[in-house]
């Protein structure tokens, strides 16, 4: 004989969807209803066979890889696409113009306030680079590829090193314009956060690192071997200091080996 309870109540009870009181009521009912008791066993057997036969399959690794690559766009040797290039050129031209105006209008600016102004511009350039699709001019974790790309576009020699084994993975490089002059930018990644290292030639003597913060970003600036470096990131200053040491040490070694 079919029981009126059987259809929905029994199923809700089995799926744990009944409130405590209703569940207790149903349990009392079941003591006298063979039909419901049997149905419950059937439902349980069905669930058991569905779960025991391992019908649940994990997603293939290729699917995970594709999604990860989409979220973290790093493709070796991929050049910047055409519309973005124009975007960069337009931005560079605007910066050049502003740079020239600033240069002419306020020669006194290039003194004590110089560092603050410079840091401001560099942080802005860093923020710009975080906009979607504008991460890098060349995206590659191969130091030779990035080296070649930068060498063909800059007149000052920048030595490119990947420090992935020390926790700073090379992600690429690009050109930017700071205060109206071309600067090379090396892009590293530390714990999922990008670090931009801006590099340009200088005539000033070597200078130990100076740090500061602006708009929630840390910067660390130093001069070595006629080049000025400024690293910017959301990362800790301690991380920037480690990267500074790695870059300075590797530059030393490559100079000595030549």
């Amino acid at each position: 004989m079919k029981c009126n309870f059987a259809d929905t109540l029994l199923q809700c009870y089995f799926d744990g969807e009944l409130s405590g009181r209703t569940a207790a009521e149903f349990e009392r009912h079941m003591q006298h209803c063979a039909h419901c008791a049997t149905e419950l066993v059937d439902l349980d057997l069905l669930r058991g066979s569905l779960q025991l036969t391992q019908l649940y399959k994990p997603a293939p690794a290729s699917l995970r890889r594709t999604i990860n690559a989409y979220i973290h766009p790093v493709a070796p040797g991929r050049a910047v696409s055409q519309p973005l290039l124009w975007h960069w050129l337009a931005a560079a031209a605007a910066m050049l113009f502003i740079g020239l105006v600033l240069w002419k209008a306020s020669p006194g600016l290039r003194s004590d306030d110089y560092q603050a102004e410079l840091a401001g511009e560099i942080v802005e350039a860093h923020v710009r680079s975080l906009q979607p699709g504008q991460m890098t001019g060349i995206t590659s974790n191969d130091e030779r590829v990035v080296q070649g790309w930068l060498d063909s576009r800059t007149s000052f020699g920048v030595s490119v090193r990947d420090f992935a084994n020390r926790g700073f993975s090379l992600r690429g490089g690009r050109l930017d314009t700071i205060e109206g002059r071309d600067v090379a930018v090396l892009v590293y990644e530390r714990n999922g956060r990008p670090i931009n290292v801006f590099i340009w030639p200088t005539r000033e003597k070597d200078n130990p690192p100076r740090t500061g913060a602006r708009q929630g970003f840390q910067w660390l600036d130093w001069r070595k071997g006629k080049l000025e470096f400024c690293a910017v990131s959301e990362a800790d200053t301690a991380d920037l200091e480690r990267l500074q040491e790695l870059i300075s040490t590797s530059a030393q070694i490559s100079r000595e080996s030549h």
Binding site: T38, V41, D42, L45, L46, G48, S49, L50, L52, T53, Q54, L55
Partner: peptide, 20 residues
């Protein structure tokens, strides 16, 4: 299905997949 047929089905993965 009776409990017996279900118990048998538990051993037969192909049949369960097909049924689903």
């Amino acid at each position: 299905a009776t409990p017996e047929t279900l118990a048998i089905a538990g051993d037969d993965r192909e049949r369960l997949i097909l049924a689903l």
